[in-house]
Each structure stands twice: as structure tokens, then as C-alpha cells.
């Protein structure tokens, strides 16, 4: 049974990959072949993006505006505020995705010609990229379920939980490390 399933999976995987290749446009691939920008150009782009985003992100994900709207505005305005903030957060997430995707696109478009390709470096980059994408998907899920204001709260809660867990683990390991004669007899 496992043999049948694995062979069917191989066949389906091949068919799926080929259909994806068939749909891929060759024109978009050649646009990836533009020469790399200089390091300064990339750094300048990063700094300008960072400068305009730092303040905006605090407004977008911070509780100040939302607390004000919650106290002073009617329900309809609250709904409108939430939906607009959600849109802004989605746009920001889209920018992050594009940045990661562009970095990888430029890399693969140029690295495929290099005969000094190192498998482990390539694998590490691919894993890094997948981690960023996975994080983006997680944030997107939180945004659509709870809205942008909940994101930082949830992260704070998760941090708190992780701290508690670390403290608990440390306590357990300390208890295990204690010599048997120092333990209290029941």
C-alpha cells in the first residue's frame, strides 16, 4: 500500500510541477536577468524605506490611535478605522514579501550561471527565504483574523509565555541537578 501511495505521489508531483512549468511565462524570467544594483544603491533604498516605515509602523500597529477611536468615535467609524488599518498593514506585508522575493530572484538569476555554486550555502539561503515567507504568512493570518492592533499584543503574550516556559524549564533542570540527599523527605 505504501509503495502504491509513494509511486502515485511521485507521478502526481511530476505532473503538478510540469503543469506549473507549462504555465510559467518565459518573458518574466528574462526580466530577472537585469544586472545587480550596487551595494550603495541597495543600502540607500533600504534606509529610505526604513525611515518612512519606522514611524508609520508604530502608528499602524500601536494601540494609541485605536484607543482614541475606541473611546471617542461611534461603531461605524471604528469599523472603518479597522478596515483601513488592515489594508495598510496588508500593503506593508506585501512590501516585505516583495523585498524578500526580489532578493532571491536576483540571487538565483545570477547564481545559476556561476560554476562555484555551493550546495550548503544555497540550501541555507532557501531555508532563510522559506522562513521569511512562513513568518509573512503567519502575520497575514493574524492580520486577517484579529487585525493589526492585535499583532503586537499577541507577540507580547507569546513572548511572555516563552519566558514563563524558559523559567519553568530552568527550574525543572535545577531540581534534577540537585543531589538526592538535599531533597526533602516525605
Amino acid at each position: 500500500m505504501i509503495g502504491i501511495l509513494s509511486l502515485s505521489a511521485v507521478a502526481l508531483l511530476l505532473i503538478g510541477l510540469l503543469l506549473f512549468l507549462l504555465r510559467r511565462s518565459e518573458a518574466t524570467l528574462s526580466s530577472d536577468l537585469s544586472p545587480l544594483g550596487s551595494d550603495d544603491e541597495l543600502s540607500n533604498a533600504y534606509e529610505s524605506f526604513e525611515a518612512c516605515c519606522g514611524e508609520l509602523l508604530d502608528r499602524m500597529f500601536g494601540p494609541d490611535d485605536w484607543d482614541f477611536v475606541l473611546n471617542c468615535a461611534p461603531k461605524q467609524v471604528q469599523r472603518l478605522f479597522l478596515s483601513e488599518r488592515k489594508e495598510l498593514a496588508r500593503y506593508w506585508l506585501c512590501q516585505v514579501r516583495i523585498r524578500a522575493k526580489t532578493a532571491m530572484r536576483i540571487h538565483v538569476a545570477h547564481a545559476r550561471n556561476s560554476d562555484k555554486l555551493e550546495p550548503f550555502l544555497e540550501l541555507r539561503l532557501a531555508i532563510d527565504y522559506l522562513m521569511v515567507r512562513a513568518k509573512c504568512e503567519l502575520v497575514a493570518a493574524v492580520l486577517s483574523l484579529r487585525g493589526p492592533m492585535a499583532l503586537r499584543k499577541m507577540i507580547k503574550q507569546a513572548d511572555g509565555l516563552s519566558d514563563q516556559l524558559t523559567a519553568l524549564l530552568a527550574l525543572v533542570s535545577k531540581a534534577d541537578a540537585l543531589p538526592s540527599h538535599t531533597r526533602v523527605r516525605r
Binding site: 541597495l42 500597529f61 536576483i106 556561476s114 555551493e118 539561503l125 532563510d128 502575520v139 503586537r152
Partner: peptide
């Protein structure tokens, strides 16, 4: 090439962290 790609990914990760924390 690897350095440039890593830098790009690091930037993306930093943006994400800034939004989250």
C-alpha cells in the same frame, strides 16, 4: 551574490520584526 541575497532577506526580516515588536 550570496551576501547581497542574505542582506535582502535580513532587511525583510527586520521589517517584519519592526512591525511585530
Amino acid at each position: 551574490l550570496v551576501l547581497v541575497a542574505r542582506k535582502g532577506l535580513l532587511q525583510a526580516r527586520t521589517f517584519l520584526s519592526k512591525g511585530m515588536r
